[in-house]
C-alpha cells in the first residue's frame, strides 16, 4: 500500500518504465554472459502486451526483472514510479505480493495443498484474515470456472484446470500486473483458448495490465501490442489490430 501512495505522487508515471536494461549472468567471471543488452520498454496501466522472441532470446530473463524477482545489472526500472533498483529483498517480496500476479508455463502450484489453499497463499503472505481469504479465494476460483474443484489438490487436476487455479492465485491480492510466461506452453489448443479468453476478459473487464510472454506468433497476434525481442535487444514494438476499448 505504501508503494501505491508513492506512485500517486506522479500521476503521469507509466506503470512500467525501463531504460537501458542490461542483464549479465556470471558477472565478473570468465564465463560472463550478457543476456539483455539494453532493453527500453514502457507499459501503461491496462495494456495487454505480448513479448515474443525465439527460445533463449531472454524473454524469461526480462520477465523476472519486470516481476521484481531479479534486478537488472544495468539500467533503470521503475514500477509505479518507484525505482526497483533500490528495493531491498524484503521490499521486493512485498511488491511482488501486492502488485504482480505470476502465471508460469508449468503452473507451479504448491503440491499437497488444495486449490483453495493455493489461492489463499498470497493473501496469507499479505496478512489477510482467514475469513476474508476464504471468501476471496472461493470467489476467484468461481470466476475462473473452478468453483467445483476447490478441495482438489494439484495432482488431481488437469493442466488447464491447474492453470486456471494459478490465474486465480495470481489475482488474489488484486495486482495491477499479470505476468504470464508461456502460460499455454504446456496446454493443448482448446485449453489454451480458454486461458487466453480469460486473459482477454480480465484485461477488458477488470482493467488488468497483462504481459504475455510467448514464442507463439498466433497468440501474440491476438494482443493489442507486441514487443519482439531478438538476441537480447527489443527490435520492434508493433501495435496489434487495435487497442481494446478501456472504460
Amino acid at each position: 500500500m505504501r508503494f501505491d501512495k508513492l506512485a500517486n505522487i506522479n500521476e503521469a508515471a507509466p506503470l512500467i518504465s525501463m531504460e537501458g536494461i542490461v542483464k549479465t549472468y556470471y558477472e565478473g567471471q570468465p564465463e560472463e554472459l550478457e543476456i539483455l543488452h539494453g532493453i527500453d520498454l514502457t507499459v501503461q496501466e491496462g495494456e495487454f502486451l505480448a513479448i515474443v522472441g525465439e527460445s533463449g532470446s531472454g524473454k524469461s530473463t526480462l520477465m523476472n526483472i519486470i516481476g521484481v524477482l531479479d534486478k537488472p545489472t544495468k539500467g533503470l526500472y521503475c514500477l509505479d514510479g518507484l525505482d526497483m533498483g533500490l528495493a531491498s529483498r524484503d521490499a521486493m517480496s512485498e511488491i511482488r505480493n501486492r502488485k504482480i500476479g505470476f502465471i508460469f508455463q508449468n503452473f507451479n502450484l504448491i503440491g499437497r495443498t488444495s486449490a483453495l489453499q493455493n489461492v489463499e497463499l498470497p493473501m496469507l503472505y499479505a496478512g489477510e484474515p482467514y475469513s476474508r481469504r476464504i471468501r476471496k479465494a472461493k470467489d476467484l476460483l468461481e470466476s475462473v470456472g473452478m468453483g467445483d474443484r476447490i478441495r482438489h489438490q494439484p495432482n488431481e487436476l488437469s493442466g488447464g484446470q491447474k492453470q486456471r487455479v494459478a490465474i486465480a492465485r495470481a489475482l488474489a491480492n488484486d495486482p495491477s500486473i499479470l505476468l504470464a510466461d508461456e502460460p499455454t506452453g504446456a496446454l493443448d489448443s482448446a485449453t489454451s483458448r480458454i486461458i487466453m479468453d480469460l486473459f482477454h476478459k480480465l484485461n477488458r473487464e477488470q482493467h488488468k495490465t497483462v504481459i504475455l510472454i510467448t514464442h507463439s506468433k498466433e497468440l501474440a497476434a491476438e494482443c493489442p501490442r507486441i514487443v519482439t525481442i531478438r538476441d537480447g535487444y527489443n527490435v520492434c514494438d508493433t501495435k496489434g489490430a487495435e487497442y481494446n476499448d478501456i472504460s
Binding site: 517480496s93 512485498e94 502450484l109
Partner: peptide
C-alpha cells in the same frame, strides 16, 4: 527448492 521459489514469487519473505 522449487516450491520455495514459488512461495517467494508469491511474496513470501525470507523470514517467513
Amino acid at each position: 527448492t522449487r516450491e520455495i521459489g514459488v512461495r517467494m514469487a508469491l511474496g513470501a519473505k525470507g523470514g517467513l
